[in-house]
Design a protein around this nucleic acid. Structure first.
Lengths: 169, 169
DNA sequence: ACCTGAACACCGTTCAAGT
DNA sequence: ACCTGAACACCGTTCAAGT
């Protein structure tokens, strides 16, 4: 079948989005490509590295002119793929495969501000994805929500406003 | 050997602290108790539930009179056990086994403020633990740090100050 | 009530061997 | 260069059977 590393990363992202991180195994990714699991090791040294490449891809097109827009763009990118926040957060340990983003933020609000914003965006996105999944599975305490995704987005903006206010913006 | 559930949770925490979350398996916990893995299922329905009990235990004695003290107490509790931040964060999906803590914070700074602070504390603690581990393993970019744990604590306080300022405190 | 022993359906990774 | 097939050392979980 003659695959390239980019094919492996694409297949992995497809499996991730379809089945979630828990089931995104080397064997499943290989099956998606019609290949044995051992064949993947020709393109990638181990699973951790594959996850890092996936994280880079998820975050590739993040950009924005202001801190708020940049943070919303990052959040959108993380939420666009199932378990995207968890993959990017743990693969890069908050140092961001695209540490471009941290550098851009740091120019605008300083190092501590950038770090605080980033930790908030990752945490909020991860919590949102976990909750939306729990919601989709049916069992969630409290009254039924009409638009959980919209509520999460509003909650995100309110927290973002708090931090930006603390940064004098 | 006649164990109770509390024995299982204690053994699991011991394995976690000694070997990390990655190696905290049902089989290892069982071995710690001198028992077969299948015996654990007499005390706990599955691994996820065991992790939730561990999270509750990690966070049990968190308290404080002000938002800042409460956040520092939570951070200290998460850092006291290897991979503690990750265990508590994912086991409770930021809803906190001790959602006491969230409720206490919400009284003081409102719901959005509490949530923002909590997301920050978890994110910072998780990143700190990952970095300290990388540091302990030797390979880390940049110049050598004299007191990485102390630097992390200072970084934490600066981010905390930003958020509290945004909350008018 | 608590535990054993064996099994089931999986993992990530390695490695000789094929083309 | 890219892949197969088999193996190794593991997983979480179930279940009949023992005491």
């Amino acid at each position: 079948m003659r695959n390239r590393r980019s094919d492996v990363v694409s297949a992995a992202l497809q499996v991730l989005d379809a089945h979630g991180l828990e089931h995104c195994t080397m064997r499943r990714v290989a099956a998606e490509l019609g290949v044995q699991a051992s064949a993947l090791y020709h393109h990638v040294p181990d699973k951790q590295t594959l996850l890092a490449h996936m994280a880079d891809e998820i975050v590739r097109d993040v950009r924005g002119e202001s801190p708020a827009i940049l943070c919303r763009s990052l959040r959108a990118a993380l939420l666009a793929v199932r378990d995207g926040a968890e993959v990017v957060a743990t693969a890069s340990a908050f140092r961001l495969g695209a540490s471009d983003v941290e550098a851009r933020l740091a120019e605008m609000v300083g190092g501590d501000g950038a770090r605080t914003l980033l930790l908030y965006v990752f945490g909020q996105a991860q919590a949102t994805q976990t909750q939306l999944q729990a919601y989709a599975l049916g069992a969630l305490p409290g009254p039924a929500r009409r638009d959980p995704a919209g509520e999460a987005a509003q909650g995100f903006d309110r927290g973002l406003a708090i931090i930006l206010a603390g940064l004098g913006r």
